[in-house]
Design a protein around this nucleic acid. Structure first.
Lengths: 158, 158
DNA sequence: TTATCTGCAAACAATTTGCACCCAC
DNA sequence: GTGGGTGCAAATTGTTTGCAGATAA
């Protein structure tokens, strides 16, 4: 996270968000800019409702339907992804499309990004050695369930 | 899979299903027995609808509501699990609660079980060496997306 | 200018709930 | 016998759709 702590739309600023939308071939409307910004800023991979709750603070007239339509078009263009989750009723989204893994906190329902290139390599090498019989893999992602703990607490091996 | 190919309820027979339900502390009703059997037999991790479609063949008066209630109680008791999925609108369930991974076929939407103790060990060792800072892991599961292919086709490394 | 997006409201789909009756323990 | 389960229908929740007016390119 970069500095600045005051108002909305500070660090991933409008110009950056605009170009991100443009690169994905999407029209950079006010609504989409704020929606994308919320996806980047909200922790734990938000639902449409959670995005809406944040976005109305800035753009009070925005409708939930617009959130759904924007999220659909973001996913269709590859700008964001739907997150695989076993819990909950609502769809959740991830603005980070680079390869990474997820930590599922059973207490808070948060889904936390976990990136570890060494682990990726380890798994890739494993599959290169003994791969699959009737399946062509394209990508993989590790889902680790557990609980968030204080920095102070001891963490036991799995 | 064991032999026999005639009618429903052959290999995981009623007695076994009964005791599985009993062990989970659930009443072994006719409906629950057939629902649990369908979960074990249907490929690719079914939705409530898919379970219902199979179960009505055997028990025509069973209602979709009963399927939902049964699935809820199965999950609550730990008999089955909800499956993490990024695609689709409906919840999907897994009757196998032992540690295993999933192959997500982007063509058929099937979710195929993948079990590999060597891989599990490799990942466990990796986390034992350099684990997490603020997260206590309890379990992990690898999600591999790709496509099913014929046995004949060549499979390329990821 | 014009194709696309937005906001609203209605429609839809998936899941849950309430309740009278039934059945496994 | 009785507490929990079933079936039905109605209610709720999450998401999609249709369309008239607004707006980015």
């Amino acid at each position: 996270m970069s500095p600045s702590s005051d108002q909305f739309l500070s660090q991933p600023d409008r110009a950056q968000l605009r170009s991100r939308l443009a690169q994905a071939g999407l029209r950079a409307t006010q609504q989409r800019i704020v929606i994308l910004e919320s996806l980047l800023v909200l922790p734990g991979h938000p639902t449409a409702e959670q995005v809406h709750r944040r976005v109305v603070l800035e753009t009070p007239t925005i409708s939930l339907g617009t959130i759904y339509k924007a999220l659909d078009s973001f996913v269709a263009s590859g700008l964001i992804k739907r997150v695989a989750a076993a819990e909950g009723a609502s769809r959740r989204y991830d603005a980070d499309c680079s390869a990474h893994h997820h930590l599922y906190c059973t207490d808070t329902q948060e889904i936390i990004d976990y990136c570890n290139p060494q682990l990726d390599l380890l798994i890739q090498e494993f599959f290169a050695a003994r791969g699959f019989q009737n399946f062509q893999p394209r990508a993989f992602s590790l889902h680790i369930t557990g609980e968030k703990v204080d920095a102070a607490q001891e963490i036991k091996p799995l």
